[in-house]
Each structure stands twice: as structure tokens, then as C-alpha cells.
Simulated scan of single mutants.
Amino acid sequence: MDTILWDEESDNYTRRAKDVSDKYLEIKEVLIADSVLDIQSSLKKVPEKILDIGCSFGITIQLMKEHFPSSEFYGIDPGKESIETAQNNNPETNISFQQGYSHNLPYADNSFDVIILSMVLQWIPRKYLIKTIAEIDRVLKTDGIIYIQEFLPNKSITSVSRHNQDVFIFKDDYSSFFVTFPWLKEVLRKVDKIEEGEDQQRCTSIIRKYEIEDVYFLKNASKEKQYD
């Protein structure tokens, strides 16, 4: 069981958001404002570069730039219409949008202080999930953070998109995937909408990337030789 890439679904999402823009943006603004506060509480300094993976029509960046006006923002999304809408809505020179995929990020190593994954990982085809995690780790600076917001089911579940029968949604505790690597540590975790049941409850997680030397301890070579 896998899924097609999210090109079409991304643009469908953008069109639906436009149709209910006022109500949608009001709800989204509250969620993003809370997310910004979560991010700010975990940062030691103002981030130079922020990447929003699965940026859709750019609403997250549009709201976050108010809190980080001196930061450079980058958004990537598979939907052509989504990217065009994002560019039209955010013409500032410190904001860049690009059509592309999470498993093949067109950015240099150690580029970003913050990477945002808001309701994105559930859409990624399973064959690209490990590549996506590797790419995120590659472009994230040491001491940078990953912001994840996803559904939090009690067990791994999948469902079919109501808009496209060829698209599957995979709900899981995605922060646990990242922290299997010892240099990635969860520093904040918050669960919301618990009263709505496991199909709707959501987890906000902030993960920090540490120096390899800070998480691996070098054995004393001379002592080790005693046991050879």
C-alpha cells in the first residue's frame, strides 16, 4: 500500500482553502500563532533561514514573517498552482517559493535554522519517507529545530483521501521517527484535541539537532586495549 505524489492534492487543498478563505485563515492564524510561540520558546536566537516543507499557498510563511521580519523564508510544495498562489501572496524579496518534493530538497547542506512540517508527513509516500527524513537532517543546521504538527493516533493507521481514491493518508507519531537518531532530541511536545478522539487529536513537537560529539562519547582507547 502506497500513494501517488501529492501534486494534485496540494492544488485541491489550495482551491478549497480559497473557497473558505476567511474562516480558514482565522482558524489557521490561531494555530500558527501558537506554533510561532512554541518555536520562539525553543530558539536561542532569531533564525536566519526558515523552510516550510509542504507550504501550500504560503499562509504559514505569511503569518510567521510578522514574528520574524528579518528572517529569510523558503517554501517548497509539489503543487504548481499552490506555489504560484504563494508567490503572488508573498512578493517580498526575503521569501522564496519553489515547486519540489521533500525527498529531494534543492538546498545546500546545513542551510536552515528552522524547518516546518505542518500536517505534511501523513501525505508522503512511504517509499519516500526515509529519504525525506534524511533530507531534512541534511539541510538542517546543527542546533536548528524541526517543528512537526500531525495527527496522533493510538496506533499507525491509514485512510483514503475523500478527494482522490489513489491517495492514502498515513497517520502516525512522526516525531518518534526522528528521535531514533541520537542527535535529534524532542524538546517540546504538546497534544491537542484529545477530547475529539484518536482520529482527530494532534501532536505538536519541536525537535532540536545536536552536535554528534555531544551525543556520542569516545571510548578510552588505552582502556579498550586491555580487553583485546
Rank of each mutant, 00 (worst) to 15 (best):
K141T: 08
K193M: 13
K65P: 00
L63N: 07
I133T: 14
E48G: 01
P106L: 02
E92V: 00
S161D: 08
S96I: 03
E195A: 11
K45W: 07
G58P: 05
K193N: 15
I76R: 07
I53N: 03
I4F: 12
T180D: 14
K131Y: 15
K80A: 14
D143C: 06
L25V: 03
Q201S: 07
Y101D: 05
N220Q: 10
Q87C: 02
P47I: 00
V167M: 13
K193L: 14
Q201G: 03
I194D: 05
F68G: 02
L184C: 09
I157V: 08
P69I: 02
R189I: 02
N154R: 05
A221V: 04
Q99P: 04
I133E: 15
I116S: 04
F181Q: 14
L105P: 12
E224G: 14
M64D: 00
D52G: 12
T132R: 04
Y216V: 05
A17P: 01
D143G: 11
I207V: 04
D113A: 05
K45T: 14
T132D: 03
R202F: 10
K209A: 03
D19T: 00
L43E: 15
N104Y: 08
L188V: 12
D228Y: 10
R15Y: 04
L51G: 13
E224V: 11
P125G: 13
D34Q: 05
L31R: 12
T132W: 04
E9Y: 05
I50K: 11
L51Y: 13
K209I: 01
R208N: 07
F112M: 03
I136L: 12
K127W: 09
D38S: 13
K44L: 15
P182K: 13
H103V: 01
Y74M: 01
V36P: 07
V30I: 10
